[in-house]
Amino acid sequence: MAYSYALLFAILALASSQAFAGDPSPLQDLCVADNKAKVFVNGVVCKDPKKVKAEDFFFSGLHKPGNTANPLGSKVTPVNVTVLPGLNTLGISVARIDFAPNGLNPPHTHPRATEILTVLEGTLYVGFVTSNSNDGNKLFTKVLNKGDVFVFPVGLVHFQFNIGHSNAVAIAALSSQNPGVVTIANAVFGSKPPISDYVLAKAFQVDKKVINYLQSQFWMDNYN
């Protein structure tokens, strides 16, 4: 009987680990992304191993400050499988985030990745919000200084705001080769075609004129 319970527990543990896993584990030493492939798969097709070279695993540029001259005052420079083909199947990526004073990386989510943030320069106010529960949506915040680290769980809404008087820089590591990003305001008010103003007015419990005003604004992201 004890053996049966142990076996059941092991099976459940394996099932749980698969259910909450990030990108699939690689089944070979390397699978460099062939970004020119015409085949559509859940991921990226592998380049012919005979054509793989060291440059496929190399990216240069994170030493360069991002241009923060935009309404958000921030710039994200992602290094994912799109720009670093050697990341394909490895389940990891990285990004540099630059902030002007009062610069904001607005509330957003990464649907496929947990993010761990390290502050290299400056002071950031950061936080994330838990998903719906009986206790509502709980906000966790922290002020981070140079050398501090904070983690944002996968899929949860989070943000970073420069509360210092000088520029700030952070490096984010993410548990996916292609974590994706959904900027909340852009998705809700800037989708194309737009979400029905009736739907949004009912969701936010405001007049449709408020929704129409918000939808008429210029919604940008800080990745481009």
Rank of each mutant, 00 (worst) to 15 (best):
P26A: 15
L117A: 09
N88G: 05
K146Q: 12
P65L: 11
V206Q: 04
V154K: 15
P106K: 09
V32Q: 08
V76Y: 01
A2W: 05
K51R: 13
V129T: 14
P71L: 08
V129G: 08
N134H: 03
E121Q: 09
A170D: 00
F204E: 07
F20A: 08
L87K: 04
P101S: 00
E121K: 14
I97S: 05
S175C: 02
G91W: 00
K47P: 01
N80S: 14
V199I: 14
S17H: 06
D135A: 15
F58W: 08
V199Y: 07
H108I: 12
V188A: 11
N137E: 08
F150D: 12
N186D: 01
S133C: 07
V149M: 08
I195S: 04
A168T: 13
S25R: 15
L72D: 02
Q215R: 13
G73E: 06
L87T: 10
S133Y: 03
I171Y: 09
G86T: 09
N186T: 13
M1G: 13
T109I: 15
N212A: 14
N222A: 06
S60H: 11
S216P: 08
P49L: 11
S133L: 09
I11T: 10
C46M: 07
G190T: 06
P65V: 04
Q205A: 11
I163L: 02
Q215F: 10
K50M: 09
F9A: 15
T77L: 03
P153W: 09
P49D: 14
D48A: 08
V41S: 05
L90E: 07
Y198D: 12
F161R: 01
Q18M: 10
S25W: 09
K47Y: 09
F218V: 15
V149R: 08
F20M: 04
F159T: 13
N162A: 00
D29G: 13
S196Q: 12
L72T: 10
Y213R: 14
L12A: 15
A33T: 01
T77F: 03
S17I: 07
F59E: 05
V76E: 10
A6D: 12
T141G: 02
K192H: 12
G122D: 03
F159I: 13
G190E: 12
T118A: 06
E115M: 01
V199L: 14
G122A: 08
F204T: 05
E115P: 10
N35P: 00
T130C: 06
F128N: 05
V76I: 13
A201G: 14
F9M: 12
A6H: 04
P107V: 11
I195R: 05
N88H: 05
